[in-house]
Simulated assay, not measured.
Amino acid sequence: MSGRLLYLLLLLSIGNNLIAQTQQMITVPEGTYTVGDKHSIVNPFRKVHLPAFEIAVTEVTNRQFSAFVAATGYITDAEKRHSSMVFEPGLEEFRWINDSTASWRFPNGVSRGGINDKMDHPVTAISYSDVTAYCQWAGYRLPTLDEWEVASRANATTRYWWGNNRDLIGEYANIWHGRDHLQADSSDGYMYTAPVASFKPNPWGLYDMYGNVFEFCSGHTKHDKPGSTMIHARGGSWWCSKNSCNFFNSVDIGGQNLHASFSNQGFRVAR
């Protein structure tokens, strides 16, 4: 390989890394914060003390993840395992399709289209392992369960940062507004993911803390068994409705397998 080609490849790698590094962050100051809920078994009401940290204003996009793949040649779990869970209207509640063609490039399977016109949408169909690899390359980490919650609450002590009335959720989150999932719902403009920052931010300027995609977090709950490989995600997604899932809030914590990939899961970074 010629020196010129090596130089060009180096420039390309640096350029791709800069795409990832353009992630806008806010700083959450050190302090003692309220988390949890007195009615939650998994996430009980308590006080936590956190050092200062930074968290991304938006979820990681297809464009940013594409830069990572271009620089590293990384192959995701869904691509290696030929297994990712996708959704299409008409399925009964909590039913998904295992699609061997689905990956981050085709998050709902090849037959349902790719991401060429969705580069500003959050990356999906990725596993916790894939997210960890991205963070190591880009110089970030995942927020912890408590950090994510503190950031989502923006100093509130209620289930949502505006209070306990979920009726305002449509102003702040891309969720499923249909009564069930038998018919397509695009009433908020999107059936699947929306471009990041399409809805109003919380008071700290963070977008899509609720809805759009479930966001991976690091850490465990007190109900995880010792040595558990269970991982967790928070905030709900475009699939979640008031009648199904209903995790678009600051309290609930979801869990799943380390290598599982779904078309409603993504992440935001912290450091």
Rank of each mutant, 00 (worst) to 15 (best):
Q183H: 14
R95H: 04
W137C: 03
Y134H: 01
G113K: 08
K80W: 09
W161C: 00
A133W: 10
N98H: 04
M85Y: 15
R81K: 12
H181G: 06
A173S: 04
T124E: 13
P89I: 00
L142I: 03
S127P: 10
R95K: 06
N108S: 14
S127H: 06
G109K: 13
R95T: 06
E149S: 09
D146A: 05
I126L: 13
D167A: 05
V150F: 15
S84N: 12
D117R: 04
S127G: 05
I97M: 13
C135L: 11
Q136K: 12
Y190V: 02
Y128T: 00
D146K: 02
W148V: 08
L168A: 10
T101A: 06
Q183N: 08
H82R: 12
N98L: 14
P107C: 05
D117F: 04
F94C: 09
S186A: 12
S103K: 01
S83T: 09
D180W: 13
I115W: 07
W162N: 01
N108I: 00
D120L: 09
W104V: 03
G90C: 09
N165D: 15
W161Y: 02
S103V: 00
R166L: 07
E93W: 08
V123I: 15
S187M: 02
S152N: 11
L168N: 11
N164M: 05
T124L: 11
F94E: 14
R81M: 11
T158W: 03
T157I: 06
L91F: 11
E147G: 00
I169K: 09
A125M: 10
R141E: 08
W162M: 06
G189F: 06
S129A: 14
M85R: 11
M85L: 13
R81N: 05
S152Q: 11
E149N: 06
L182N: 07
D185A: 04
G113Q: 12
D99F: 09
L142V: 02
G113D: 11
L142T: 00
A154L: 15
E88W: 01
R81T: 02
D167Q: 05
V131R: 13
T157Q: 15
F94W: 12
G113I: 06
I115K: 03
S129D: 13
R166A: 07
